[in-house]
Simulated assay, not measured.
Amino acid sequence: MLPVVPMFHANAWGMTETSPVATVGSARSHLDGGTEDERADARARQGVPAPLVELRITDPDTGEELPWDDVATGELQAAGPWVARQYHRGEGEGQFTADGWLKTGDVAAVDRYGSVRLVDRTKDLVKSGGEWISSVELENELMAHPAVAEAAVIGVPHEKWSARWSLNGH
């Protein structure tokens, strides 16, 4: 009889412009002996950069690079030998940084091991009072309350705060 070997489900992340895979999830030795919840959280991540792919997260306003502490969230940017540096005939203006990084449009946090956790899309962020707020994270917090079955969060213009929230839930 063969021994039972636990399987580790791995995720990956990429896009056409990254030809196509940029990260791959795999079992990580720092999780040996971890709880089932810790291992489940690791399986839900998008993984670490593939060889020769560089990733960074940046502040949407300043472009400043953010730390890999799994707390800071910013736009995920990619660079590498097979990552697109421009679009055909100059289409997609603004999709690349001045130093050649691809702006993916994804919002992510990266842990100290380089493992990416996608949290939102830049199109779904709303700036309110100088702070970028994720509509997805706010909806998830609302739906975590036992009295809320569904929620939708939409940013609406506001003179003082740039945007405020319009909440619709039941």
Rank of each mutant, 00 (worst) to 15 (best):
residue 90 G to L: 05
residue 7 M to V: 10
residue 56 R to K: 14
residue 40 A to T: 14
residue 33 G to P: 13
residue 9 H to D: 02
residue 8 F to T: 01
residue 73 T to H: 09
residue 32 D to F: 05
residue 43 R to M: 12
residue 36 E to F: 14
residue 82 W to R: 14
residue 83 V to F: 15
residue 38 E to R: 06
residue 20 P to Y: 13
residue 73 T to I: 12
residue 86 Q to I: 01
residue 48 V to H: 07
residue 9 H to K: 07
residue 30 H to W: 11
residue 60 P to A: 10
residue 27 A to L: 15
residue 71 V to L: 14
residue 79 A to C: 03
residue 71 V to Q: 12
residue 49 P to S: 05
residue 89 R to K: 13
residue 26 S to C: 10
residue 8 F to S: 00
residue 71 V to H: 12
residue 90 G to Q: 13
residue 62 T to H: 11
residue 13 W to G: 00
residue 77 Q to F: 15
residue 72 A to G: 03
residue 57 I to P: 00
residue 91 E to M: 04
residue 41 D to N: 04
residue 90 G to M: 06
residue 41 D to C: 02
residue 93 E to M: 06
residue 76 L to W: 15
residue 61 D to T: 07
residue 29 S to F: 04
residue 48 V to M: 11
residue 28 R to N: 07
residue 93 E to Q: 13
residue 37 D to P: 00
residue 42 A to P: 01
residue 13 W to L: 03
residue 71 V to M: 11
residue 42 A to S: 06
residue 84 A to L: 13
residue 49 P to Y: 13
residue 19 S to L: 09
residue 37 D to M: 06
residue 79 A to V: 03
residue 24 V to C: 08
residue 33 G to C: 07
residue 42 A to V: 03
residue 9 H to F: 14
residue 53 V to C: 02
residue 13 W to F: 13
residue 22 A to E: 15
residue 77 Q to G: 01
residue 70 D to F: 08
residue 40 A to E: 15
residue 24 V to T: 08
residue 41 D to T: 03
residue 57 I to Q: 07
residue 47 G to Y: 07
residue 91 E to G: 10
residue 8 F to Y: 13
residue 37 D to R: 10
residue 42 A to R: 07
residue 5 V to K: 12
residue 62 T to C: 02
residue 34 G to R: 14
residue 27 A to Q: 12
residue 15 M to H: 01
residue 42 A to N: 09
residue 54 E to H: 14
residue 69 D to S: 04
residue 44 A to P: 07
residue 85 R to Y: 05
residue 47 G to E: 11
residue 80 G to L: 06
residue 19 S to V: 03
residue 86 Q to T: 05
residue 39 R to S: 04
residue 23 T to R: 01
residue 5 V to S: 08
residue 58 T to Q: 10
residue 79 A to I: 04
residue 46 Q to D: 12
residue 59 D to F: 06
residue 54 E to N: 13
residue 10 A to D: 08
residue 85 R to V: 00
residue 79 A to N: 07
residue 35 T to K: 09
residue 76 L to H: 08
residue 33 G to S: 08
residue 75 E to R: 03
residue 6 P to A: 01
residue 82 W to I: 05
residue 66 L to T: 01
residue 58 T to K: 09
residue 82 W to D: 04
residue 66 L to S: 01
residue 19 S to K: 09
residue 14 G to S: 09
residue 76 L to R: 03
residue 8 F to L: 00
residue 34 G to V: 07
residue 67 P to W: 08
residue 74 G to V: 03
residue 81 P to A: 06
residue 28 R to E: 15
residue 50 A to G: 05
residue 44 A to Y: 04
residue 23 T to F: 02
residue 13 W to S: 01
residue 9 H to C: 01
residue 35 T to A: 05
residue 39 R to F: 03
residue 19 S to M: 15
residue 84 A to S: 12
residue 4 V to Y: 09
residue 27 A to K: 06
residue 81 P to C: 09
residue 71 V to P: 11
residue 54 E to T: 09
residue 50 A to C: 11
residue 26 S to A: 13
residue 35 T to L: 08
residue 74 G to K: 04
residue 21 V to D: 13
residue 39 R to C: 09
residue 63 G to Y: 13
residue 84 A to Q: 12
residue 9 H to Q: 02
residue 67 P to T: 03
residue 21 V to E: 14
